[in-house]
Design a protein around this nucleic acid. Structure first.
Length: 484
RNA sequence: GCCGAUGUAGUUCAAUGGUAGAACGGGGGACUCAUAAGCCUCAAAAAAUGGUUCAAUUCCAUUCAUCGGCACCA
């Protein structure tokens, strides 16, 4: 039985700066990837950028750039973000960064379309669009206020017909429900699974999967119809399999999507339907294996649960925070201080408090005090036994309960601090050297275990702890300096 | 409007049909290995109303408040 594991984030749409939601999703997927690697899996980690569509085309025009230059700029920015988040080259993990403008992806998306078409799930029909003559623009339902254009409320919207391709989503109600029944852990957390099941049970409508190329030139051309380009679904969602070589390299595809039991996907709650229903139907239509699990994140909000926005001025820029506090501090925050599945409020003040309490006073201080005693009182580095991580830690990560798993580490930190207070080894070595040394060795072993558990969560810190223990040295400078 | 969820110390969360736990923040104390850190200790909480029950924060109903979804926005 090969131990392979494939995990992917959704691809950020590159029409704006990266926000906390991106950081959250990328780090958590990386934590799971590193955890799987830790327990012996060979891991494929996919992320990238979604680069087609009307909005990007317009943004590029606004910036007086070609869409190619515009998306290249953002793709690079997101790659920089990955580095800042600690998503870097890691032994045992294949890192992949896909851009939906990659030639291989374009080919893959077209092949996927043709396969679904061949299987009879794509057809052409009239699609009615709402058009505001005042704006001279097409309007979507979500653009409208009380059924009218907000800028021209007194003008009647015109209904115009346009020919588009559609996907027969409606035929997948039963297959989807059957798939859900067979895979009771398909969506995490469970309340999101209920939500999507209700949605599917209520009935499905076919969705449109192309746009007129004349109107929207920045997209992947529909096979055998140069007048149309693919709308987002058959473009962006297909990245999860184009990333692992489908259909050009079926051996690679088999390794990561078949032998693994399917990909594990991370996404925000706004992506629930796309990932757990639409994309799964598309895979069924193509006769390809489904995803194994889709993990749904909550949102990061401002204080009081208010949506972060520029106008509110309550946004948190992950890049700025990493600049001040460091990569591992950000990884700590999104894994332990933000709920694994629910919305969580976050402010700069909360970040600082959590940093001081748990990284400076908690973890960092423990490292200093334990290693100082070790350096002073031990003649050689402690030999740490092989397996010291509690099984519970693995069980929690297996269920994507990253927050609870991280909590467990901080419990271990508190236990060690308490033990120092109760046994006072720093005093004991003066009266009973042997006994004092015994306790210090135990503390070093505990610290090393904490270092091991931190491996998926805070890889840099994990390595620093292990190196200090192996060298029997106290840190030259505090690992997490208090910020005032 | 419909569907779903949530409402617990100042804040962020937890457990529970029978003393409501924790963390941060706040007050006090003894200590010194450590980053004015750590440890001990104190104060501090169930949105409202009604019902079921010997007993409700927990179950049910209603009200109020907040959030999400109600599809072509990526």
């Amino acid at each position: 039985m090969p131990k392979n594991f494939y995990i992917t984030t959704t691809l950020p749409y590159v029409n704006a700066e990266a926000h906390m939601g991106h950081a959250l999703e990328i780090v958590r997927a990386d934590v799971i990837a590193r955890y799987k690697k830790l327990i012996g899996f060979e891991v494929f980690f996919n992320t990238g950028t979604d680069e087609h569509g009307q909005k990007i085309y317009q943004k590029a025009l606004e910036n007086k750039q070609t869409p190619e230059a515009y998306t290249a700029f953002y793709a690079e920015k997101f790659q920089d973000l990955l580095k800042l988040l600690g998503v870097v080259e890691t032994e045992g993990i294949t890192r992949n960064f896909i851009r939906t403008t990659d030639a291989s992806h374009v080919k893959s998306a077209q092949a996927f379309w043709q396969l679904c078409d061949k299987n009879g799930f794509i057809y052409k029909k009239n699609y009615q669009i709402k058009y505001c003559v005042g704006c001279e623009l097409e309007k979507t339902d979500s653009d409208l206020v009380n059924g009218c254009c907000p800028d021209h409320p007194n003008r009647e919207l015109e209904i115009r017909d346009e020919e588009n391709y559609f996907f027969k989503f409606s035929e997948f109600q039963k297959p989807l429900l059957a798939f859900y029944d067979k895979n009771p852990d398909f969506v995490a957390p469970n309340f999101r699974f209920k939500e999507i099941r209700n949605f599917v049970e209520a009935g499905l409508s076919d969705f449109s999967i192309s746009r007129l190329k004349a109107k929207m030139p920045w997209g992947i051309e529909v096979p055998n119809d140069s007048t149309q380009v693919m709308y987002v679904w058959f473009d962006a969602l297909v990245n999860y399999i184009s990333a692992i070589g489908w259909p050009a390299d079926l051996e690679k595809f088999t390794k990561w999507q078949v032998e693994t039991g399917g990909m594990v996907q991370y996404c925000g709650k706004d992506n629930l339907r796309q990932q757990t229903a639409m994309w799964q139907s598309m895979l069924l239509a193509a006769g390809l294996p489904n995803s194994k699990t889709v993990v749904i994140d909550g949102f990061v909000t401002g204080a009081g649960g208010i949506k972060m926005s520029k106008s509110m001025g309550n946004g948190i820029n992950p890049v700025d925070h990493i600049g001040v506090y460091g990569t591992d501090a950000m990884r700590y925050y999104v894994t332990r201080e933000l709920s694994s599945f629910e919305d969580t409020a976050m402010t700069a003040e909360m970040f600082k408090e959590a940093y001081n309490a748990n990284l400076a006073n908690g973890l960092g201080n423990l490292i200093s005090r334990v290693m100082k005693m070790a350096e002073t009182n031990l003649s050689e580095p402690v030999t740490v036994p092989e397996k010291t991580i509690p099984q519970e830690f693995f069980d929690l990560l297996e269920k994507f309960e990253i927050q609870k798993a991280t909590d467990l580490i901080w419990q271990k930190i508190a236990e060690a601090d308490k033990m120092i207070q109760e046994t006072q080894p720093f005093k004991l070595v003066k009266t009973d050297k042997e006994k004092g040394v015994e306790i210090i060795k135990d503390l070093v072993t505990r610290l090393y275990t904490i270092g091991r558990m931190l491996n998926p969560i805070m890889p840099e810190t994990s390595k620093k702890i292990k190196d200090l223990v192996k060298a029997n040295k106290s840190p030259a400078a505090p690992l997490f300096l208090r910020k005032d």
